[in-house]
Amino acid sequence: MDQAQRQRVGAGNIVFREGDAPTTAFLIESGRIAVSTLQHGEECLLAELGPGALLGEMAVLDDAPRSATALALTDCVLTPVDRSQFAERLAAADPVVRALLMSQLKRYRSALARLTGEVDGLHSASESDAGAMDKIRLESELRMALENAALDVCLQPILHIEHGVVAGYEALIRWQHPERGAVSPGEFIRLAEETSLIVPVGEYVLERVCDMLAELQRRGRKPLPFIALNVSARQIEDPALVERMLAHLRSRGLPPACLEVEITESLVLDRPEIAALITCCHEAGMEVALDDFGTGYSNLGPLLSLDFDRIKLDQSFVRALDRPRGVALVKAVLAMTEALGCEMIAEGVETTDQLRMLGEMGCDYAQGWLTGRPVTLEDVLRS
C-alpha cells in the first residue's frame, strides 16, 4: 500500500479523543493502542489493541461521537478507513445482519453509558430495524410452520387444450398465518431462499405432492395426472435430488412420469449442474419444464444444450394476445418450441379469447384462472 495512505502516530500521542466526530476508523498495521474512557472522573481502560485490529469503527458505523479516547502506547502505523467505505458496505448488507449489528452497537453504547455514569435513554428501533426484526420473527414462524406441517400445498390445473381435459397440475405452496392471515408466497419463499430453509421447504412440498399422487392413484384416477413442482437454486445444487425424488415415488408405488420438475428461467444461466439434473430426470423417466420463459432473463443459448420437455410461456405474453405484436411473439415462441421438440404451456390464461387463440396457434397446454384456480386435493378428488 502507498505509504502516503498510512498514518504514523508516535508513542504517547492521541489518535482521537472521547467526544470527537467519527470521521474515520483505522486498521492498526503495527504498534499498540490503549482505548480508555472516564469513569466517575477516573480513567478506565477498555481495551488494548494491536496489529490487525480495527480502531474507532463503532462510532463510524452508528455515526455517534467517539465514546472513548485512543492513545498510542508505542509508535504505530495506521491505515485510515473512510466512513463512506463502511456506509456502502453496510447499506448493501443483508437487512437482518445490519439490524443485528446496530442492535449490538446500541447495547454497547448503553453499557458504556452506565459504566461512565452518563444518562442513557431508551433506544427505539428505526423503521428499517423494525422491518429486519419482523423478518427474523417471520423466519422463526416459518420454521415452526414447517415443523407443525402448517403449510398448504395447492394444485393448479394444467389443461390440455386440444383434448379439453386436465392433464396435470402445478404444486403451489401457501401459508395461512394464524395472526397475519395469508402470507404472500413471494415473501416467504424469498425469505426461505435467503436461508437454508428453502431446502426443507422444498422437501416438504415434494413429500406432500407424492402423498397427493398416491391418494389419486388409490382413488383410481386414470390416467394418473402429473404434478409439477418448482425446484430452487439450492435444491439444484444437491446431486442427490433426483434420487430422493425417486425414493419418495418408489415408497408409494408411483411411476416417475407422474412427477415433473420445473426450473425457473432465471436459474438456467451459468449453472452447469442443470444439464446434469435434466439428464438424471430423463434417465429416471421424469420430464423437465422451463418455467417463466420470457420474463426478462431470456437467453436462447441454453436451449441449444438443455433438453427441456416443456416450456412455460410467461403470462405477460398471453396478456399481449390482444395486440398484433403479442400474437406474432407467441407464434414465434410456439414455432421455436416445436422445432426444439418441446411442448408449450401458456401461463396466466384468463379469458376464453386467449384460450381459443392459443388453441388455434397449436399451443399444447393452458394454465390460469380460466382453466382453474389453485385448489386443495379434496377439490381435485371431487372433480
Score class of each variant (00 low, 15 high):
M1A: 13
Q5I: 06
R6N: 12
E18K: 10
T24R: 09
I28E: 07
G41S: 08
E42L: 09
C44R: 15
L45H: 01
L46M: 06
E48Y: 04
P51R: 14
G52M: 12
L54I: 15
L54C: 04
G56Q: 03
D62L: 01
D63T: 13
A68K: 06
A70N: 01
A72K: 06
A72D: 05
L73Y: 03
D75C: 09
Q85K: 09
F86I: 00
E88V: 07
R89G: 09
A99P: 10
L101N: 07
M102Y: 08
Q104C: 12
L105Y: 09
Y108V: 06
R109Y: 02
A113E: 08
L115Y: 08
L122C: 11
S128R: 08
S128Q: 10
A132G: 03
L138D: 10
E141Q: 15
A149K: 15
A149W: 09
A150E: 14
I173G: 04
R174N: 07
Q176M: 09
V183W: 07
V183H: 03
P185H: 11
R190D: 14
S196Y: 07
L197R: 06
V201P: 00
E203D: 12
V205T: 14
L206V: 03
R208T: 14
Q217K: 14
Q217H: 13
F226L: 03
F226R: 03
L229P: 15
S232Q: 09
Q235M: 12
Q235C: 08
I236W: 14
E237S: 11
P239A: 11
A240T: 02
R244Q: 14
L246A: 03
L246F: 04
H248I: 01
R252D: 08
P256L: 01
C258M: 05
C258P: 06
E260N: 12
V261Q: 07
T264N: 10
E265K: 13
V268L: 13
E273P: 11
E273S: 15
A275F: 01
I278L: 12
I278T: 10
H282E: 05
E283S: 12
A284R: 05
A284W: 03
M286Q: 10
E287Q: 15
D292S: 10
F293H: 04
G294L: 05
G296L: 10
Y297I: 10
L300N: 04
L300S: 08
P302Q: 00
L303W: 12
L303R: 11
L304V: 02
L306F: 07
L306S: 06
L306P: 03
L306M: 10
F308Y: 11
F308A: 13
I311Q: 03
K312G: 11
Q315I: 02
F317P: 11
R319T: 03
R319M: 13
A320F: 02
L321A: 04
R323L: 07
P324F: 00
R325K: 14
R325I: 09
K331E: 13
A332R: 08
V333P: 02
L334N: 04
L334I: 06
A335C: 08
M336S: 02
L340D: 12
G341Q: 07
V349R: 04
L355N: 02
L358P: 01
G362T: 14
Q367Y: 11
L370K: 01
R373N: 03
V380M: 08
